[in-house]
């Protein structure tokens, strides 16, 4: 089944490359080399995996409590904004890295959490669908970043919509120095494991899953449904904010308009594919990161459009969901 999905995706991909008049074989070889085959490529993949994994955990957490937070891009943005803000404003203080890095990351996480809390409060107080508010807030955050990058924080020497760089002390330490992979991926994996522990080994996590499985049954069982949902939503928002901070502190070392090339939406697909299970998210997000890094490479070599990766990923997910639904239809059974 997964093979069928991958084959379908690959076929579409090949078709696109062929239409662009390139040799698919050569293109795939470069893509593979630039994502898994070389140290540099592998490092790129790990760097791509970090935000993907964190964002997928965000979406999974919201789904686990029966909500759908799809504003991860916005949360990445505001996380990046506050991380940059902290980095820039603390630059004169000259703090050492071991103080600077945690501050920047914590700032990003807090910004993401606070941002999603807007949607959470609207949901809790007036029942406004968080799907809608989070996606609207994406646009607000994107415009905010655009404003900062072109306005007050703009680095006039760069000639693009990017801000001044944050101090070197705020940069994440490197994991693979040669390829430029930062340690964020370790952090992300640790977060995934912790999230698993929270959900499956603690009582608050049990309450979250219960709320997600059946909010009314949970309510009757005396669980504060709204409270649990708010906590999970905020926690998730924090993780996406953290992803934004990691992108700033680990990859770009500054804020820029294209901070997230749609990680939020890719994260949805990752989470759906992994059925919202935090541990399964790790390999799935790695696989998707390979796709993203590979498509980056295709973009450079054969002019493969950046957005095509969405198509391929979404296609994989839809094919798998359809096949699963087909199978579920055959094995309906009751004790």
């Amino acid at each position: 089944m997964y093979v069928a999905a991958l084959a379908a995706a690959l076929a579409i991909n090949t078709l696109v490359i062929a239409i662009l008049r390139h040799d698919p074989w050569v293109a795939y070889k470069t893509a593979l080399n630039d994502s898994l085959g070389s140290i540099g490529g592998f490092a790129q993949t790990l760097n791509r995996m970090t935000p993907l994994l964190l964002v997928a955990i965000t979406f999974s957490l919201s789904r686990q409590v029966g909500l759908a937070n799809i504003g991860m891009d916005g949360q990445i943005y505001v996380g990046g904004v506050l991380a940059t803000g902290i980095g820039l404003s603390l630059a004169p203080a000259g703090l050492p890295a071991w103080q600077m890095v945690p501050l920047v990351l914590a700032g990003g996480a807090m910004a993401g959490a606070a941002f999603v809390l807007i949607a959470g409060v609207l949901r809790a107080a007036w029942g406004v669908s968080e799907i809608f508010t989070t996606v609207m807030l994406n646009f607000v955050a994107a415009y905010l970043v655009e404003f900062l990058c072109t306005g007050p924080w703009n680095d006039p020497t760069a000639g693009e919509a990017i801000t001044y760089p944050i101090p070197r002390t705020a940069a994440l330490p490197m994991l693979i120095t040669r390829g430029g992979a930062h340690t964020g991926v370790l952090l992300a994996c640790a977060v995934a494991v912790l999230t698993w522990g929270l959900l499956y080994r603690t009582v608050p996590g049990y309450e979250m899953r219960a709320v997600g499985a059946n909010a009314r049954a949970a309510l009757i069982a005396g669980i504060g449904v709204t409270r649990v949902q708010l906590i999970a939503l905020t926690l998730g928002g924090g993780l996406s904010g953290l992803a934004g901070a990691i992108e700033v502190a680990g990859v770009h070392e500054r804020l820029l308009v294209g901070l997230t090339p749609g990680y939020g939406f890719m994260g949805i697909l990752v989470a759906v594919l992994a059925r919202y299970h935090p541990l399964v998210l790790i390999p799935v997000s790695f696989a998707f990161a390979v796709l993203v890094a590979g498509s980056d490479s295709l973009q450079r070599t054969v002019g493969f459009p950046a957005s095509a990766v969405f198509l391929v990923q979404a296609l994989v997910v839809i094919v798998i969901m359809v096949v699963e639904a087909l199978r579920a239809r055959r094995e309906r059974y009751v004790i």
Partner: peptide, 21 residues
């Protein structure tokens, strides 16, 4: 069916609902 069970969770997890505290 609507108010009693936790679809997608196991029987054991459903039994402890409300007793879990």
């Amino acid at each position: 069916v609507r108010d009693g069970i936790l679809p997608g969770m196991t029987l054991a997890e459903t039994v402890v609902l409300g007793l879990h505290r």
